[in-house]
Design a protein around this nucleic acid. Sequence first.
DNA 1: CGGGAATCGTGGGTAGCGCCAACGGATTGG
DNA 2: CCAATCCGTTGGCGCTACCCACGATTCCCG
Lengths: 148, 148
Amino acid sequence: METAPSRLRGKASWLINKTSLHAHRLITEGLSPIDARGYHFAILAALEEYGPASQASLSQRCGIDRSDTVAMVNELADQQLVVRAPDPDDRRRNVITMTPEGRRRLDQLDAVLGEVQRDLLAPLSPADRERLVELLGRVLDHHTSSSR
Amino acid sequence: METAPSRLRGKASWLINKTSLHAHRLITEGLSPIDARGYHFAILAALEEYGPASQASLSQRCGIDRSDTVAMVNELADQQLVVRAPDPDDRRRNVITMTPEGRRRLDQLDAVLGEVQRDLLAPLSPADRERLVELLGRVLDHHTSSSR
DNA sequence: CGGGAATCGTGGGTAGCGCCAACGGATTGG
DNA sequence: CCAATCCGTTGGCGCTACCCACGATTCCCG
């Protein structure tokens, strides 16, 4: 196999993009057999951590576009993992609530994604994995706080 | 600002995907004003490091699909940064050669992308940036060697 | 209290990226 | 010499992340 140019290998943006592709592939491979996708996990996780919420706050918390959130909530509602009801206090809003099935589904997705993390970070020691997560978290915090 | 669910923040795949998006945004913002794109840099870098090459070896080295390489070489050739000529030794192949303008362009793109790296990794110390690049490099090596 | 600004859900559309299928021309290997 | 392979090229697909526009609702302020 021919090696990648060292100028590329040294660019963090290149490494991140390529790694992101691998991660994305692993995720869809792991999730599509059980008819799920990454966004489902994000939304369920937000519901579990913060309780019932409007679609707007879900999309803001998960970094998903409002339009796309509609589709995700549709899918989750179709699978009875979530209930969408108009908010009596503010009739512009929908209140999205996780069902018990949704709660179970969240655990299932978390297990699958945990497996994916292990595959993805296979060559790294536990300490190195933590270090990577910490570094990326710092980068992400910086960019999401400065842009908002 | 509402915080992302901790279940998401702990997943390396999520952090990587989000960071990749920021990187991608910074890159296109930096490159589109000068009518360039990330792939251009990749191909020029490969040509500089390994000399004239066929499109097939370029796409393999850069991890770009053969189809997309055609378009990229078209764009680079339109801008006189690269010359495409049939290979007399193997008439299936084209030999792609970087022009002096291409060489200069490579330096320009490298400068812009260097700036992007600085913006992207702004919150990290030089040592941390190196660490991040090293960790991602290990991950990437593992996945590209095991799949090929 | 009234009306303009902002918010929410929703539908529609767009652009780029990564990928695959297929083909004709050329070369290689058995 | 025939089959398998390689190379460049075209065309198309699916997904993701966006953006805009719209009606309905609520908020804010004069």
